[in-house]
Amino acid sequence: MDSLDEGVDAAVVRAEIRRYERRARLRNVVRRVVVFAAFVIALSLLYSGYKAVGQSIDDAQRDWPVIGSVMPATNDLIMPPISAILSEFDDPPQRRNAKTLGQFIFEASLFTAREAFFGFVAGIVLGLSLAILMLRSRTIERGLMPYVVVSQTVPLVAIAPIIVIWGQTNFGWLPFTWNAWMSVSIIATYLTFFPVAVNGLKGLQSPSAESIELMDSYAASRTQTLLKLRFPASVPYLFAALKLAASASIVGAIVGEISSGVGGGIGRLILDFASRYTTGPERLYASVAGAAVLGIVVFGLISIAERYALRGRAQENPVV
């Protein structure tokens, strides 16, 4: 946006800018929705097209040299038609239960979202605490930062079952009963705290030397500088991290469910339908699609919150 010249009638200019911004924002949203819809349609066409070609030549493309060996078969078991996947959402997967698959997937998504949410919140608290701790001294930062980075190379998601057992044996002292899904939240926390700690620290360190001197010139305390300057300055960085962390917490929850076998969530649903693939491949596809939608919805929610929190600020794109 162009800056205003001095002495222009402010109210008029302000209204004009606001109208312009609202229109630009709306156009942006519409464009993104259109592009996303186009992407989904293109993907479906690619899937259906490949399937149609393969079936018309009787899967003969699998005999092609070099690439043929990796081409998936196109029969209805390996690649069920998209129409069948869509109509499956309306069918009840259990014989003595009227609940449709769509409802099952929706409820499972909420369950997983709950696991992810608690993990996400705990991860933000942990990540921010680490960032504030590392802000206090270069020595602490040097001592901790390598391990924050290394922590993400530990395949903790792989040992979800161990964490479930560990959680049950070690959290007996808590005032509430430790549920298995809470252990899944721990895994989500583990994936969430990392971007928050790294970007949080970057954001807390982002104010210019002059801004810090300004606060010093007011004899502001360390806490005041943190709350009035460093923390607000870190918000764009934090949101970049939160977008990563939100997806990571969903991934952590899904993988945690899959590897620990904790039931009720979308990860467990995928696992179940994968093991009963031959009797209904459409259900696996539908539940995977449900997981994809969950990831994108959570990401979208954070993006909306970001836009709201950063309104009025200069456009910033911190490198993450």
């Binding site: 210019s208 002059e210 801004s211 300004l214 005041q224 607000p232 300055a233």
Partner: peptide
């Protein structure tokens, strides 16, 4: 009071709230 080469205004505060910053402190 101090002023720097860059105005060092806080992006996230309106003009009024920038002026009120030292008063809040």
């Amino acid at each position: 009071g101090m002023a720097f080469q860059s105005a060092s205004l806080f992006d996230w505060r309106t003009v009024t709230r920038n002026i009120e910053l030292p008063l809040e402190l």
